[in-house]
Computed example of a mutant assay.
Amino acid sequence: MSPHPGLGSPAATEQSQSRLSRRRERRKSEIVNAAIALLATNGYQGMSLDDVAERADIAKPTLYHYFASKDELVSAALEALTTGVLTCLTSVLDATSTASHHERLRALMTEQLRLLTDQFPEVGTIFSWQTSWPAMHDEARKSMRRRHDAVFRDVVSAGVNAGELDCENIDAALQCLHGTINHASIWLSHMRDPHQAERSKTDLLNALMRVFTSSAA
């Protein structure tokens, strides 16, 4: 008969380390989420590690066990938001892999509107064209915006090449798309009547699709 795993056994040690690792990742996620919320409301200059620690309900020295500096935490927050959004958009593309380019673009628009309204409302604020961010983070935000833009651009370009979409200037059309959805997410989030919000969302998506389906005269 094999010995029962004791507290000092390799199995018990591995299990304990696994729990510690999960606990550490949860705490790290809580800190990043606190930073995201503060960046959205206060901006880079207005976010302090004291405020992050208070919002995450931890002591400031504990915070330094996870992030050595404010800039390290901000970098993690920006990457977490970008990864979250891109993961959702990629899932939409995977789910619509056999659909038309027209349908895939509308599905992306719908998901982007949902993300900004419900799941990641901070994105519109944090990734807007503000000038008060340090150069290192401003360059990172530009890179992340390009990664996000590429998801839509690839679908639009493929649709234009296939003759399914009609768009004379993809850059201008995408600016219209992102700018409209960013502002519309705020507009829709303040609607108290869910039926009105749903009708308005449908009308908005129909209007945006027309940007990609007819050339200017």
Rank of each mutant, 00 (worst) to 15 (best):
D57K: 13
D57R: 14
V155P: 15
N182W: 11
E72S: 04
R26E: 15
V211C: 11
A217V: 05
S16P: 00
V32Y: 06
T96P: 04
G46Y: 12
N161H: 12
H65F: 11
S100H: 04
S2H: 14
A217M: 02
M209Y: 02
S200G: 09
L78F: 07
K28Q: 14
E139H: 06
E122C: 04
F152W: 01
T62M: 09
I36P: 09
L113C: 08
A158M: 00
A77L: 01
N33R: 11
A197R: 15
L177C: 05
L177Q: 11
R55E: 13
E25F: 03
A99D: 12
H190A: 08
A37T: 07
G124R: 13
Q17M: 11
L63A: 11
L63F: 12
E14R: 12
S18A: 12
M209A: 03
D94M: 08
L49V: 08
L205A: 05
H137C: 02
F67N: 08
H148W: 06
E122A: 11
S200M: 13
L116P: 15
E198W: 01
L38I: 00
A34M: 02
S214W: 06
G124T: 11
E198M: 08
A172C: 00
Q45S: 12
T202E: 14
T41R: 10
L115F: 05
A99L: 03
D50Q: 11
M109T: 04
V52E: 05
A162R: 11
H148C: 01
F67C: 05
G124L: 00
S100K: 04
D50M: 05
F127W: 03
R210W: 07
L113S: 07
K28D: 02
S215L: 01
H4S: 04
A197M: 14
S69F: 00
H178V: 01
K142A: 10
D154V: 14
T117H: 09
S2K: 15
L108D: 07
I58N: 09
D154K: 06
C88N: 10
L177G: 04
Q196M: 15
M144W: 02
L188A: 14
I31L: 10
I186S: 14
L204Y: 02
L113I: 00
H178E: 10
M191C: 03
G179S: 06
N206F: 00
D71M: 00
I31K: 08
Q112N: 10
N33Q: 14
H65E: 10
V52W: 02
R141M: 09
A158D: 14
L115E: 06
A37E: 13
L205E: 05
L105A: 01
A99W: 01
C167P: 11
S9G: 02
S91T: 06
D57L: 10
A80M: 05
T41H: 12
T180V: 13
R24N: 03
L174P: 09
S185Q: 03
A76E: 05
V155S: 06
H137K: 02
L73Y: 00
A40E: 12
T98F: 13
I31F: 06
S189V: 00
S200K: 10
H65M: 11
L20A: 10
W133R: 08
R192A: 13
R23I: 00
S16T: 13
T87S: 13
E103C: 00
E72D: 06
E30S: 11
S48M: 04
T41V: 07
I170S: 05
T87E: 10
R153S: 08
A107K: 04
I58F: 04
A68D: 09
